[in-house]
Design a protein around this nucleic acid. Structure first.
Lengths: 116, 116
DNA sequence: GACATATCTAACCATACGGTTATCTAACAT
DNA sequence: ATGTTAGATAACCGTATGGTTAGATATGTC
């Protein structure tokens, strides 16, 4: 908790349920109940996921009578994309192949035991 | 553990120490000892961080005598960037304003059909 | 062989996470 | 006033995370 914003965003996104919630919210705001339906988990569990998402700034809360419709806030996703973009030069295929090749050369020897 | 690859990547990236390790590895492979130096944590702690990164496919292990030099593997970062890119349309300011505006419009009318 | 270097494993500890059920609170409906 | 609907909180549980210290395991050097 109380980590830097980027860490909070990454942590919030590290759960498939929460990413599914964001995907749903990309279609438009919706209520906690609507969000909970497709998941085989209880309401409080969804509430907790939403709290994590809100704390990471990925979701905001509106109000409409008893409902508290959630809305997507994509700014932290932009931060994530920018962070990832800094590594673009490392993820092209030619680099990966070179990398694998070098790796192969260096592990000509029987290798690392510790199979446990 | 044993989550899907994207979740593992996000979880691995949700720690500033681990992101710093990746940043260091972007300059070239280096050993556990070299990686540990700038951080005020013990060797085993670094080892654990590296295990998380390896498990997420973000780092690979070479061998050179007693050393086990780590190298950056950026493929999972590409996955992260692609995931984030799906939300590009939501992260500009004009969209946020449009979103708020539409929201306002829809709360003017007691529910009609359509528009969902 | 004896020793130093580099790293991993083991055991432990405190806190966080994801889930549950049960119990509030808030706003509408009759 | 009573109930219904939509969510939030509280208390709890098992497991994971991030850190520690101490001890094992490889490899290279003397």
């Amino acid at each position: 908790m109380s980590a830097d914003p980027l860490s909070r965003a990454f942590a919030a996104l590290a759960d498939p349920t929460r990413r599914a919630i964001l995907a749903r919210l990309a279609y438009g705001e919706c209520t906690v109940g609507e969000l909970a339906k497709p998941f085989a988990i209880s309401g409080p569990a969804v509430s907790k996921h939403l709290k994590v998402l809100e704390h990471a700034g990925l979701v905001s809360r509106g109000r409409d009578a008893q409902r508290r419709p959630r809305r997507l806030r994509a700014a932290p996703i932009k931060q994530v994309a920018e962070w990832a973009g800094d590594y673009r030069q490392f993820w092209d295929a030619s680099y990966e192949r070179l990398d694998a090749y070098l790796n192969h050369l260096m592990s000509e020897q029987p290798d690392d035991d510790a199979a446990k």
